[in-house]
Simulated assay, not measured.
Amino acid sequence: MALAQERLCYLRSVINACQDWLVVASGQDAIETAHAARKMSVSFHFQTATPLSGSLNLVDAFLAAGIDRAILAYNEANPFPNGCHEVRNARLSALGRRLVERMDATGMRIDLRHCGTRTSLDVLDTALLRPPCSLIPTHAPCSITSAGF
Score class of each variant (00 low, 15 high):
R7H: 10
C9G: 13
C9N: 15
Y10S: 09
R12N: 14
V14P: 00
I15G: 01
Q19G: 09
V23C: 11
V24Q: 06
A25W: 09
G27L: 01
Q28T: 08
D29K: 10
D29N: 09
D29S: 15
A30R: 00
A30V: 07
E32N: 01
E32D: 15
H35D: 12
A36Y: 06
A37W: 05
R38W: 09
S41P: 07
S41V: 05
V42E: 08
V42Q: 04
S43M: 09
F44Y: 14
Q47M: 13
Q47Y: 09
T48F: 02
P51L: 08
L52Q: 06
G54T: 02
S55L: 02
L56N: 00
N57F: 11
L58N: 09
A64C: 11
A65I: 06
A65T: 00
G66W: 02
G66F: 08
I67P: 03
I67T: 03
R69P: 02
I71Y: 06
L72R: 03
Y74A: 12
N78G: 04
P79T: 04
F80C: 04
N82H: 12
G83M: 01
C84I: 10
H85D: 14
E86F: 04
E86P: 06
R88S: 13
R88N: 07
L92W: 03
S93R: 08
L95S: 11
R98P: 08
L99F: 07
E101D: 14
R102L: 05
D104H: 06
A105D: 13
L112C: 00
H114E: 05
H114C: 14
G116W: 05
G116S: 09
T119W: 07
T119H: 02
L121F: 08
D122A: 00
V123E: 01
L124N: 07
D125R: 12
T126K: 08
A127K: 11
L129P: 07
P131H: 08
P131S: 10
C133L: 12
S134D: 09
S134K: 08
I136T: 04
I136K: 04
H139K: 11
H139E: 10
A140F: 02
P141Q: 13
T145V: 15
S146K: 03
A147F: 11
A147Y: 10
